[in-house]
Amino acid sequence: MIRFQNIAKIYSSDITALEDISFKIDKKEFVSIVGKSGAGKTTLLKMILAQEKPSRGKVFFDNQDVHKIPHSELPHYRRRIGSIFQDYKLFPNKTAYENVAYILEVTGSSDLQIEKEVPQALEIVGLGYRHSNFPRELSGGERQRVAIARALIHRPDVLLADEPTGNLDPYHTREIIQLLSRINEMGTTVILATHNKEVVNNLGKRVITIENGRVIRDEKTGRFVL
């Protein structure tokens, strides 16, 4: 479904973020990408979203070169992907409810559908009672959960999760990872970028380890080894 082909990302002569990265991710797979901070995990996810261009190589999504998608077609492509951003990227002037509903508005869902599904999504992440709060009124963990609800609400084909448990306590971390697993079981491909050892080891799924911009390990049922 997603294929990285000889990807390199060079910011300047002395900063090489990624070097000769090649791997593929099948439909319905759950893949963890692990590595130290600055290893290039986020850059890889950004490339899938066509947010960043590789200096060399290609990224394919369903055999389509992601970076050749015309600018006007990008919204349609991106609607197939749900993103949990490291810095949440919530809309500051929208309530938790509106942040989640925005995605359904974008995809053209009916008002009825929005009214039904948004509260459910907020319930799932345990924030039903926070629906009318603005992001500034929420804690870091709560914001992260709103971001998760927003990424899941439209049942995307692929879910990109960049450190989705970074600000969560162990209880909520477990909940969220269970949620991601459930979503994966229902058919969504999940790509999780994290440096949470416990999370990766408990999952028992495929692990791709990146170090100094290169893939140093790719194991079917891997463990966090760095």
């Binding site: 919204p75 492509y77 991106r78 609607r79 925005y102 995605i103 974008v106 995809t107 927003r150």
Partner: peptide
């Protein structure tokens, strides 16, 4: 930028 990334049209 976020709106673009979540698939909103221009």
């Amino acid at each position: 930028a976020t709106m673009r990334l979540v698939g909103a049209s221009n």
